[in-house]
Computed example of a mutant assay.
Amino acid sequence: MTASSNEPSRRLAAVPDVDPAPNPHATQEQVEAARTDTKLAQVLYHDWEAETYDDKWNISYDERCIDYARGRFDLVAGDQPLPYERALELGCGTGFFLLNLMQAGVAKTGSVTDLSPGMVKVALRNAEHLALPVDGRVADAETIPYEDNTFDLVVGHAVLHHIPDVEQSLREVLRVLKPGGRFVFAGEPTTVGDFYARWLGRITWEATTRATRLSALKSWRRPQSELDESSRAAALEAIVDLHTFDPADLEKIAESAGAVEVKARTEEFAAALLGWPLRTFEYAVPPEKLGFNWARFGFTSWKRLTWLDETILRHVVPRRYFYNAIITGVKPS
């Protein structure tokens, strides 16, 4: 079922005028409560990560990430006329996807929403620093607090796998899109890709934290309090990552929600096999130990392996084996 003129519009009367404040330091009691409350877990985990998220994932708002965001968009919607007048980012995090797409000329103005107050705060701060016209709200992706037919484009990065009811969320996306409007969601983990990425991450974390217990490598060990907090965050992460997707199944979900012109692409196979150990290692050691040369090595390696993935491997490896899925669709006119 898709949104139509016969369905009741969602009004904003029930939306609070003041967004809740971020809670960046979840207690053990809150973590325990979140084990049985998925949306509480989402808020606690992403509030905890908000202020350090860009550093953790090497997110920037310069040419490197502008090109990355535009590249993900162009993989599934590169033939569309630009710019879109008004865009929404669902589950915005720190605003990485929308803000870089706006800098790339994909959209003129933007709105950001996230269930985490901490993430919305950081996204709006990033938009202000970039002098981009963006507003934002703390919001549930299953009940988006905007009127019908508001946006020309809805985007998201690594958000659908956090949402309990993905099809309901996509219905909401179609409701707030104008007829003919498009959505693009990137960075969604495939089922096979998530399996090998998690195992690579666990092995790298265990090896690094064990090795840095040795006296010769003591200076490479993060303070125990930081490792303990990371472990607590990891416990929440296991709760907030609700889904993985087979690309074909993701297309069916979007079509069932009412979208047309649905298409899924996947990316990062060789790049993911290297990327996940590198990212995990970076987070397991003090950041001052890794300088510019390490960052250049990581980025250059990722670029080369991405070229290998796109030029050769995508022609011989089934798409479900790649790590990231990108899905696009259009609201019927």
Rank of each mutant, 00 (worst) to 15 (best):
A3Y: 09
S5Q: 09
E7W: 05
S9G: 13
L12S: 07
A14D: 15
A14Q: 12
V15Y: 14
A21I: 08
E32N: 07
D37S: 11
Y45T: 08
Y45R: 14
E49T: 04
A50W: 08
D55S: 14
D55Y: 05
K56Q: 12
R64M: 05
C65Q: 10
I66P: 04
A69M: 09
G71Q: 00
R72L: 13
R72Q: 15
F73R: 01
L75P: 03
G78A: 07
P83F: 11
Y84F: 15
A87W: 03
L88T: 05
L88D: 00
G91L: 08
G93K: 14
T94H: 04
L98V: 02
A104H: 09
V106A: 01
A107E: 06
K108E: 14
G110H: 03
V112G: 04
T113Y: 04
L115F: 11
S116E: 08
P117M: 09
G118D: 04
M119L: 01
A123T: 11
A131W: 02
V138G: 02
D140Y: 03
A141C: 14
T143G: 01
Y146V: 07
D148K: 11
T150V: 07
D152F: 07
A158R: 05
V159S: 06
H162T: 08
V166N: 03
L170Q: 05
E172Y: 06
V173C: 11
P179C: 11
G181V: 09
R182Y: 07
F185D: 01
E188C: 01
T190S: 15
G193Q: 03
Y196P: 11
W205P: 01
W205L: 13
E206M: 10
E206Y: 09
T208L: 08
S219E: 15
S225H: 13
D228W: 09
S230N: 12
A238H: 10
I239S: 04
P247Q: 10
P247D: 06
E251G: 00
I253Q: 10
V260W: 02
V260Y: 04
V260S: 11
K263V: 06
K263Q: 12
T266A: 03
T266K: 01
E267Q: 09
E267R: 13
E268N: 01
A270L: 12
L273Q: 06
L273D: 01
W276Y: 15
T280G: 03
E282W: 10
V285P: 05
P286G: 02
P286S: 04
N293T: 13
S301G: 07
S301F: 01
K303M: 12
T306N: 11
L308F: 08
E310Q: 14
I312V: 15
H315C: 04
V316S: 08
V317S: 07
V317K: 06
P318K: 04
F322N: 00
Y323T: 10
A325W: 00
A325C: 15
T328R: 15
K331R: 15
S333H: 11
